[in-house]
């Protein structure tokens, strides 16, 4: 792992990984991952399928114990810091008949893990209303979630992840299945809400281009290794060639970035193209 700016490692970091390694099914999925994220920072996580992106998020969530290394959230063990982490999982496709309104889905992020019924209450309702407002979802707050579009659902999940006032929010491919315009909307929204609330964002995506305007740093994963830095520091031919272990070119066209691998790495070309 190359942390290209060691000065960026601060003591007040929200997330600290040191020497993290994970083996799954007898294979090293992640190895030697060190990273340190600041409050309010927006980090895009990019990498080919199977690079270990979801695995990395599971470690930060405390759902998976790394075989080596330490993970600290706001200086605490991940299991003690669960309430400080918001999460938007990789796939969410509710049944069309699911009797659950948008506002109920968001409320689950607030107290869905508590036993018993919610006693309702003015404060809870106000909090849900506020979270719906953050993501501009008030207009469909009472609609059943099964009938909403992918973009509308994604906004609700962002609200669900943010409603508990986490310090860091992890989003696993929230842009998949969205058209370009909705991708832009969701990225802008996450960027704005996180910035306003000082929440660190870790957003996994296959295409870095929608993130270029909001992302502070990029975490590039390949072959279980990671490179962390600004886009200009990381998304370079020499850095990515070393990460991937074979020749990679970085092409910039019309303000977009294309990562082009050799003939043996077709997936690379597609990762950063519009599909």
């Amino acid at each position: 792992m190359r942390n290209l700016d060691p000065l960026r490692v601060h003591e007040d970091s929200v997330l600290d990984l040191q020497g993290v390694a994970v083996h799954l099914g007898g294979r090293a999925v992640l190895q030697g991952i060190d990273l340190s994220l600041r409050p309010g920072e927006f980090v895009g996580v990019i990498g080919p399928n199977g690079a270990g992106k979801t695995t990395l998020l599971k470690i930060i969530l405390g759902l998976l114990r790394p075989d080596e290394g330490t993970v600290l959230v706001a200086g605490r063990d991940v299991r003690a810091a669960r309430s400080l982490v918001g999460y938007v999982p990789q796939s969410f496709a509710p049944d069309p008949d699911l009797p659950l309104r948008a506002r109920d889905l968001v409320a689950l992020g607030l107290d869905g893990a508590r036993w018993g019924f919610s006693l309702g209450g003015q404060r809870r309702r106000a909090k849900v209303e506020e979270a719906l407002g953050w993501v501009d979802a008030l207009r469909y707050a009472d609609q059943p979630v099964g009938r909403l579009s992918g973009g509308e659902l994604q906004r609700l999940l962002v609200a669900q992840a943010l409603i508990s006032d986490p310090r860091i929010v992890l989003l696993d491919e929230p842009l998949a299945n969205l058209d370009l315009r909705s991708q832009g909307d969701v990225v802008a929204l996450v960027g704005r809400v996180a910035h306003e609330r000082g929440v660190t964002v870790v957003l996994v995506t296959h295409d870095m281009n929608p993130l270029l305007s909001v992302m502070d740093r990029i975490l590039y994963l390949a072959r279980g290794q990671a490179a962390l830095g600004t886009v200009d520091e990381v998304v370079r031919g020499d850095v990515l060639t070393q990460l991937y272990g074979h020749h990679v070119d970085v092409v910039r066209v019309h303000g977009r970035i294309l990562v082009v691998g050799g003939a043996d790495a077709e997936s690379l070309t597609c990762n950063t193209c519009d599909s």
Binding site: V88, L105, L108, G109, G112, A113, W115, G116, S118, Q160
Partner: peptide, 19 residues
Amino acid sequence: YRPLVFASVNPQAAQAKGV
């Protein structure tokens, strides 16, 4: 009630929240 709804609707998010 609430954990069951959460776990039924969105299990991964529920698990991350400690359900």
